[in-house]
């Protein structure tokens, strides 16, 4: 099947004061119809440039962008504008017309397409219903919250009956909860209207939440592409690993061979013992082994911890456990 978007050897070079800057270099990928395709990368990786090349808001310096088989870079101006009507786009800062009310904002793409005003208004109201903002039809963007503005932007984009929806950091200006609801809405749109969605983001959580496929962009180069599962299971590149494990950016390697076995009884299960130790002693401990077993009807947990090299800190940890009434014994040569 012909992919809905195909990018071939795409380059974009900007003229800067001190020479040329290659924003993206030799990008190749395909997006199948109905996919939610994530493009992830750190800031400055060229994500925004790349997405703008997909509807030629930014004209590529080299290469080709095929949408439904036709090369956008070769289309005459008029054809290009008609094609753009089928490629919707939403933005980080919503980009609503501030001097128009919500209803007229949603009508805007239909005005451009030359749809009769009465028809456009009716459809705009339906779309506002879809995004849950029907009662805000007469409000102005300045009176709405960020999440509401993005919903209006989504209704507006749907008004153009797009086959593709480009989202440029569409949730980056929103709080986590609003982000979740907007992502939910995007997913719903993808399923209900079969719109292919391209999501640009720097947050792995967004990719995890809705994307089926993902491309990792690093310094203007496509580092890897694949399904989201593949990326999570086995990131092939350093940058992908960084993005996947973004929570644990600074991993301390434990080199010490000092280990203890701690036994928890049923009572201490209420206290987050390991968590407290880490906070108290401000040092990581390595859990090498943990198990729970029932001894005479009581749940007992055992755990083997690797302690930090620093003797003083190690002693402090052992003392802490003893103070809490847990049994601690040093173990040597622990082998799994």
């Amino acid at each position: 099947m012909e992919p809905i978007i195909r990018v071939e050897h795409l380059y974009k070079t900007f003229q800067a004061k001190n020479g040329q800057v290659e924003a993206i270099k030799d990008i190749n990928f395909e997006i199948q119809k109905g996919d939610i395709f994530g493009i992830i990368g750190l800031s400055g990786a060229g994500k925004s440039t790349l997405v703008r090349c997909l509807n030629l808001l930014e004209r590529p310096s080299g290469g080709a962008v095929y949408v439904n088989g036709s090369n956008l870079t070769e289309l005459p101006e008029k054809e290009l504008r008609r094609t753009r009507q089928k490629i919707g786009m939403i933005f980080q800062h919503f980009n609503l017309l501030m001097q128009r009310n919500v209803l007229d904002n949603v009508c805007f793409p239909m005005e451009i397409a030359g749809i009769k005003k009465s028809v456009a208004r009716k459809r705009a109201l339906e779309l506002l219903e879809t995004v849950g903002l029907r009662e805000k039809a007469k409000a102005y963007p300045a009176q709405l919250s960020g999440g509401q503005k993005q919903r209006v932007a989504i209704a507006r984009v749907l008004a153009g009956n797009p086959e593709i929806l480009l989202c440029d950091e569409a949730t980056s200006a929103l709080d986590p909860q609003t982000t979740k609801s907007i992502l939910g809405l995007l997913k719903e749109i993808n399923e209900k209207y079969h719109i292919t969605i391209v999501v640009i983001t720097h947050e792995m959580a967004v990719v995890q939440e809705i994307c089926s496929h993902v491309a990792v962009l690093d310094h203007g180069v496509l580092a890897e592409t694949g399904t989201v599962e593949e990326l999570f299971r086995s990131p092939q590149t350093e940058i992908a690993r960084q993005l996947v494990f973004s929570g644990s950016a600074h991993i301390t390697h434990m080199k010490s061979d000092r280990m203890v076995r701690v036994v928890f009884d049923g009572n201490s299960a209420f206290e987050p013992m390991i968590g407290n130790i880490i906070l108290e002693c401000k040092t990581p401990v390595n859990i090498l082994y943990a198990n729970t077993q029932t001894v005479h009807g009581n749940a007992e947990g055992e755990m083997i911890l690797q302690l930090p090299e620093d003797t003083e800190t190690a002693e402090k940890i052992i003392r802490y456990f003893r103070e809490k009434g847990l049994s601690v014994e040093e173990v040597r040569d622990y082998v799994e």
Partner: peptide
Amino acid sequence: VDKGVIEAAQSMGAGTFTIIWKVLLAE
């Protein structure tokens, strides 16, 4: 006028005249 709004209009396939009339002058 916010460049982003102009960009949004361009992404909808608006022509130069439409952008001048409905985005630049109106906004």
